[in-house]
Simulated assay, not measured.
Amino acid sequence: MIKYTLVCDAKHGFEGWFRNSDDFDSQRARHLVTCPVCGSAKVEKGLMAPAVSTARSKEARGLAPPVQPQDLPEPATPPTPKSVDTPLQPSALLPGDVRQKELVEAFRQARARIIENSENVGTGFADEARKIHYGEAEERSIYGETTPKDAVDLIEEGISVMPLPELPEDKN
């Protein structure tokens, strides 16, 4: 099973579980995937959590549990209808805007927590994620670098991945 973070055209976020990527595409094409908030069938995949899981349990081996969604900082308050269409549109985040600072700080905290609780495997991310998923390597949280094509291939194999949030200081 694959868990996708989904977003409708009205920018409502929600989760959906699918047998595989093709199952999601098929259901979406038949308008069976709809937003639970507004009922829109115009749904796209959103950002997904960086987790690599196998049947083995970290707790059984005495390792720290993976970062859970409830451990991450709360997202910033959604904008009012008169302010912007979506909280992450660059046009909505004007310089000096308090919301921009809140969002960047929330991303910074989430990223720091992920990095603190994960192992950097560098450019070998895709290979190591597969080894963990298929039980060839110890189960653990990892992060690193991969190509967009390899990321799509991992997702299609049922391996959940997500890019770490890019922060303004990353470009300096």
Rank of each mutant, 00 (worst) to 15 (best):
V152C: 11
S141Y: 03
P69N: 11
A112L: 05
R113W: 04
V161Q: 05
F125W: 04
Q89W: 14
A106Q: 07
I114H: 09
L88C: 09
S118N: 02
Q100L: 07
A129F: 08
A106N: 06
T77R: 12
S91V: 14
N120D: 14
A76W: 03
V84S: 15
R113K: 13
I159C: 05
R99N: 05
P163F: 01
S160P: 00
V161L: 10
L94M: 11
R111E: 03
E105T: 02
P75H: 06
P65G: 09
V161D: 07
A137R: 08
P148M: 10
E145D: 00
G144H: 02
T146W: 00
M162L: 05
S160F: 00
P148V: 11
P73G: 09
N117C: 08
V67Y: 01
G122V: 01
E139P: 09
Y143K: 02
R130N: 13
D97H: 05
V152D: 15
D150L: 14
E138I: 10
N120K: 00
I159E: 07
E136R: 14
S141E: 14
V161R: 01
A126F: 07
I159S: 04
T146V: 08
P148K: 09
A112E: 11
D71S: 11
R113Q: 15
V98H: 01
L93D: 04
T147N: 07
P90N: 08
A112P: 02
F107K: 08
S118W: 03
A92W: 02
L93G: 05
E157G: 05
T80H: 13
S160L: 08
Q109R: 11
I159G: 03
P75F: 05
I155N: 06
P90I: 07
K131M: 10
I142P: 00
I159Y: 05
P148N: 10
K131L: 10
E136M: 12
G135W: 10
L94K: 13
K82I: 10
D85Q: 10
E116D: 12
L93S: 04
E138K: 05
G62T: 05
V121A: 04
K131N: 14
D127F: 04
S141V: 08
P87C: 12
V121F: 01
K101I: 00
I142V: 09
E138R: 06
P95K: 01
P81Y: 05
V161M: 08
L164T: 04
V161T: 15
E119A: 01
P81H: 07
R108K: 09
D150K: 12
G144F: 01
A137Y: 02
F107E: 08
G124A: 12
E119D: 05
H133K: 13
